[in-house]
Structure formats: structure tokens, C-alpha cells
Simulated scan of single mutants.
Amino acid sequence: MSREAFRYSYPLRVRYSEIDGQGIVYNAHYMTYCDIATTEYMRALGIALDVETARASGADVHLVKATFEWKAPALADQELDILVRTERIGRSSLTLVIEIHPRDEDSLLLRSEIVYVYTDQTTRRSTPLPEDWIARIQAFDGVMASS
């Protein structure tokens, strides 16, 4: 996917504690990068993914699937752009696509697809996404809800 397909970008600089003995980002840290960027993406859309909001509403998102395709390593102290967009809106789920690029470059380091399910915290079963979430995501990313 081209960078132009993404309206949201989160900047991050690789920290020393995230690299391995080869000077490249250890693979587990990419999930953390995706999680941070997702949280900030949702915050930018006015959607709160925090403990207080989850307790008040009785519902929260659960990660149910994450895939990663590594194309090239991120390096120590490298500046990155983590691009996030919603690819699909289901009844109770969101599918996000996340790409990691070197800052202001088109070369792709990683592509991830992450699926979250909105879940009732009492029953631990999926529940419909809030209408305001759907409206905010549609307005920002232009993706339509699927039936």
C-alpha cells in the first residue's frame, strides 16, 4: 500500500533497549510499536481506549488476530513513521492495517494486519461497535461498515 493511502502517522525513534545484539529491533517490539500507534490513532479520532472508559461503558476492545510481514529491519536510533488505517469495519470488529517506514521514506519495513473485537466485559462476548466510533472512522478513513 502506498503511504498516501494512510491519513494517520505516528513518529517513533528506535530506542537502545529495543535492539538486539545485531543492532536491529527485536521482533517482539514491533507489536508494541503497533499498539502505541493504534492507541494514538484512536485518540486522534476522539475514541478513548483507556481503563476508565472501558469500566464506564462495560465494553472494551480485545485483540484477536495479528499478522506481521517483515520486509527489512529497523535499526538502532532510526526514526520511523508508523502508519495506521482502518481497513474494515464489521458488526463488532475493526481490522487495522499498520505499516512501518523509515521517516519520510517509501521503503516498507513492516506491514501488519490487526483485528480487534469490541467485547462486553461481563459476558466476554462480542457486542456491536459504538455508532459514534463507526462514524468517526468512516469520516476519517472513508471505509464503510460491512454487514
Rank of each mutant, 00 (worst) to 15 (best):
Y26N: 03
T123A: 12
Y118N: 02
S17E: 12
L12G: 03
H62A: 12
I36Y: 15
A74N: 01
V84N: 05
S9N: 00
G23A: 12
A135L: 11
T127N: 10
F140M: 04
H62N: 13
A139R: 12
T38D: 13
R136M: 07
G21A: 05
S107V: 15
R103H: 11
P11Y: 09
R103L: 11
E131C: 08
D104G: 06
A66G: 06
L110A: 02
V14G: 00
T38I: 11
T123S: 08
A72T: 06
M31A: 14
S147M: 07
Y118T: 04
L109H: 06
G142A: 15
T86L: 13
Y116C: 12
V143K: 12
G23R: 05
L129I: 15
A28D: 05
D120N: 13
R111H: 05
W70D: 01
I36R: 09
M42A: 06
H101W: 08
E105M: 03
V64Y: 05
E4M: 08
E4P: 05
P130Y: 06
S107A: 12
I19C: 02
F68I: 13
D50S: 11
P130V: 15
L110N: 02
V115H: 00
I98Y: 02
P73C: 10
R124Q: 13
D106H: 11
I24H: 01
V117Q: 07
L63N: 08
E87D: 05
R124F: 12
L96Q: 00
T122A: 05
T86I: 08
I134F: 03
Y16T: 00
F68R: 10
V117C: 08
R88A: 07
P130R: 07
R91N: 13
P102K: 07
